[in-house]
Amino acid sequence: MAKVLVVTSGKGGVGKTTTTAALGAALAQGGSSVCVVDFDVGLRNLDLIMGAERRVVYDLINVVNGDAKLPQALIKDKRLDTLHLLPASQTRDKDALTDEGVSRVMDELREKFDWVICDSPAGIERGAQLAMRHADVAVVVTNPEVSSVRDSDRIIGLLDSKTVRAEKGETVDKHLILTRYDPARADRGDMLKTEDVLEILSIPLLAIIPESQEVLKASNVGCPVTLNNPLCAPARAYADAARRLKGETVPMAMPTERKSFLDKIFMRRAA
């Protein structure tokens, strides 16, 4: 039974695309067949984060309009056979996506894959609403920062009203991924704590992704962080999140970078 998951946040720059790529790769590594779909029409970036930017021929809008068949537009990942990407269009704008067309493509994706992961554009407008429309599961990506938490609250409201599931009187299964978390700053009282964000948003926690240089390093080379350096703290946190999504019970530990003795001496202030 295929599951459609939307990665959404309201606010931009909090880590939706990083999360989409990392979760997609982690789920595919676990043996599931996965398609990551970029809904950010006009500002596509998932192709770049996945390292597939040079192989884009057709995109979501071509498939929605019937200019290309779905298998023609799907890009198979070079590292994982079970991971595929459906890129967004870079030139057209989001109005080119029709409700019926998106609906048809999502049905077709459901038949082919175990997981369909939709990377939502920022904002709460039509593009974001189309990305979440067919979701069974939602991952809300939030930074421990006031504007991000407020926007996440708006998005949670939309998930409860503007999705196919909500309209049928069912619910979308919502999860929180807290990104760019710095336990030391939270302990000092300079950053919202996990408990604060959870209490305010009242949705269950899927993962805490610590602030880490590894995320930028992975995006520099176009490789999901879970594949680029599987042992680094954010990769381990995303891998645990993927296992939880599959229904496994994984204890929630605050992942920390493993530093050598010399690192600790010479790199005390490294993030």
């Binding site: 006031v146 407020r150 939270a186 009282g189 704590k193 604060d196 305010i200």
Partner: peptide, 24 residues
């Protein structure tokens, strides 16, 4: 904290709780 100055995260938390109660 010992000297009674509230941390910025405590302020953030209260501001959020208030504005979100209204927005909801």
């Amino acid at each position: 904290n010992i000297f009674g100055k509230r941390s910025s995260s405590a302020v953030a938390r209260e501001r959020l709780q208030l504005i979100l109660a209204h927005e909801r």
